[in-house]
Amino acid sequence: MGIDTVADERLASRLAELRLERGWTLEELARRAEVSRSTLSRVERAEVSPTAALLGRLCAVYGRTMSRLLAEVEPAPARLVRAADQAVWRDEETGFVRRAVSPPHGSLRAEVIEGRLPAGADIAYDRPSVPGLEHHLWLTAGGLELTVDGEPQLLAAGDCLRFVAESTRFRCPGPEEARYVLVVVAP
């Protein structure tokens, strides 16, 4: 599982709540997210931890950033977020590690995320979690091919890419992992 067993169970419960709040069946959610009903059922029962790509699809359907969704299953963050208290989530399928350095909170519109993508990992998001979401990605180590709306950009350590996108693809060509800081600003 991803974060830890208790957090996975809270995430599964929150995903089920979001679906029920909208009055959707699993079939309706499956159609909207373009994910199989059986996969969604297993995720909502915490039998499996969702991949980053699946969470991205669900966030898009629910109109939330991934950080906001993950923050909804964690206790409300304090003003000071100590390193030891920053939520870390791992996609077991790709090895992607995501740290919520400054998670969503109250009326603040920005959040800061640290991402680590191992060499060879490739994650595609076919739709934005929130339309109009502003991104500032600063690559701190390694190399990263970031495709924004079909236009690939090869980033080297120190480069910053700013964008609002409909689709994105993160690919680490290697040989070392890509490490980056991502600032996300809600519209």
Rank of each mutant, 00 (worst) to 15 (best):
D4Q: 08
T5E: 15
V6E: 14
A7V: 07
A7M: 12
D8H: 12
D8G: 10
R10L: 00
R10F: 08
A12R: 09
A12I: 10
R14V: 06
L15D: 10
A16T: 03
E17K: 09
L20S: 04
L20N: 02
E21V: 03
G23R: 15
W24V: 13
L26E: 03
L26T: 04
E28C: 00
L29K: 05
L29H: 02
A30N: 15
R32N: 02
A33N: 11
E34G: 12
S36F: 04
R37K: 12
S38M: 14
L40Q: 03
L40E: 06
S41K: 07
R42E: 11
V43C: 09
V43I: 15
E44S: 02
R45N: 12
R45L: 08
A46N: 15
V48L: 11
S49I: 05
S49R: 11
P50K: 07
P50I: 01
T51Y: 13
T51V: 12
L54T: 09
L54S: 08
L58F: 02
L58M: 01
A60D: 00
A60F: 01
M66A: 12
R68T: 10
R68K: 15
L70W: 14
A71R: 14
E72F: 11
P77R: 00
P77E: 04
V81D: 15
Q86Y: 06
Q86H: 07
A87G: 05
A87L: 12
V88I: 07
D91M: 07
E92S: 13
E93T: 05
E93Y: 03
E93P: 03
T94I: 06
T94A: 05
F96M: 13
V97I: 02
R98G: 06
R98T: 10
R99A: 05
A100L: 14
V101Y: 14
V101R: 13
S102C: 08
P103D: 14
P104E: 03
P104Y: 07
G106P: 04
G106Y: 02
S107G: 14
S107F: 09
R109I: 06
E111M: 10
I113Y: 13
I113K: 14
E114T: 08
L117K: 03
A119G: 02
A119Y: 01
A121I: 07
I123H: 09
I123W: 08
A124K: 02
Y125V: 07
R127W: 04
R127E: 05
P128N: 08
S129L: 02
P131A: 01
G132V: 08
L133S: 06
E134D: 06
E134I: 04
H135R: 10
L137Q: 04
W138R: 04
T140V: 13
T140Q: 15
A141P: 14
A141V: 13
G142R: 10
G142E: 03
L144M: 11
L146W: 07
T147W: 01
D149V: 01
G150A: 07
E151R: 10
L155A: 09
A157G: 09
G158Q: 10
F163C: 11
F163M: 11
A165C: 03
A165E: 04
A165I: 05
E166P: 04
E166I: 05
F170V: 01
R171D: 06
C172Y: 00
P173R: 00
P175N: 06
E176Y: 12
E177V: 12
A178C: 03
A178M: 03
R179G: 04
V181S: 09
V184S: 01
V185S: 04
A186T: 15
P187E: 12
P187R: 10
